[in-house]
């Protein structure tokens, strides 16, 4: 899909891994490190970074650093859950379409057409629709899974289609192995690289949708980075640090996972080729 941009094992991949680790550590350890609670005012509103805390205070005088440290875990956890669900759905449909579609064309259509129909909707519209019917975290995870699965299914089907005619797969079909065995034990290991790279891209989309939900005020409730961005915007002129911190964290998360997925896709293809 993409052409190679960096030499193998190159510094962008290492830098991305380091950034991802740092952001993940901030999110996972943040609740332990936060000096204050997310809700208690600790100073005057819009106090600049310095005496009132490393990142100053927000429009209600709450400590921005604590809110940033506490806001990462909900974003990461919800994104991971949604990306995992979407990836699982897409991989199952993609592998199934490759295996069954090799013999019966209609089976491939039956598996992929409904996903194609959903793919016509921009992911954000899927999110809005899911949150209208099912408010809260369940709706976000559902939206991430449904919006991501069609793309996953296409990528995985394309990667698995040439594998279906391999000897060991045909032997397993002839032995009468179950569908679960064929998909999970025969085909899945052959496309592990594309699956991982694709899961990375699903995670980027998940972070996007989770923070967008928080930003629109329909999030998981409480504090997350999307909520922080929405709250900091009106006072951006007075307290830019309160906006800059969550903006930079969300950007770093998206960019680092994207670079890693890019790298993995390239290596996965090199192994298969």
């Amino acid at each position: 899909m993409r052409s190679s941009r960096f030499p193998a094992g190159s510094w962008p991949a290492f830098a991305a891994a380091a950034v991802l680790l740092a952001v993940a550590a901030a999110a996972l350890l943040g609740p332990l490190l936060a000096p204050h609670t997310a809700t208690r005012p600790v100073g005057l509103p819009y106090a600049p970074p310095g005496a009132a805390g490393l990142l100053g205070t927000d429009h209600l005088g709450r400590d921005v650093l604590s809110r940033v440290l506490l806001g990462g875990l909900p974003v990461l956890a919800t994104s991971a859950a949604g990306a995992l669900a979407g990836s699982a759905l897409g991989v199952t449909a993609g592998l199934g379409a490759a295996l069954l579609g090799a013999r019966r064309a209609w089976a491939e259509g039956a598996l992929l057409r409904p996903l194609d129909a959903v793919a016509a909707l921009p992911p954000l519209v899927v999110l809005l629709l899911a949150l209208t019917a099912l408010p809260g975290r369940a709706g976000i995870v559902l939206a991430v899974a449904v919006a991501g699965a069609p793309l996953s299914a296409r990528v995985i089907r394309a990667a698995a289609a040439p594998m279906v005619s391999r000897g060991h797969v045909e032997a397993a079909v002839a032995r009468g192995e179950s569908l679960g065995w064929l998909l999970g034990r025969e085909l899945l290991p052959l496309v592990a690289g594309p699956v991982l790279a694709d899961a990375g891209l699903r995670f980027v989309m998940a972070v996007y949708l989770v923070t967008a939900a928080g930003f629109l005020g329909m999030g998981t409730g409480g504090t997350d980075w999307g909520v922080l961005i929405a709250e900091a915007l009106p006072g951006a002129g007075l307290q830019p640090a309160a906006l800059a911190a969550p903006v930079l964290l969300v950007a770093a998360l998206g960019v680092s996972v994207n670079v890693l997925a890019d790298e993995m896709l390239r290596r996965g293809r090199a192994v298969l080729a």
């Binding site: 923070t211 903006v247 998206g254 960019v255 994207n258 670079v259």
Partner: peptide
């Protein structure tokens, strides 16, 4: 790649900053 990895409202927030 940087631009495509960042949600558009984050991008817009950066522009505001």
């Amino acid at each position: 790649l940087l631009v495509v990895s960042v949600p558009e409202f984050v991008l817009a927030g950066g522009l505001v900053l």
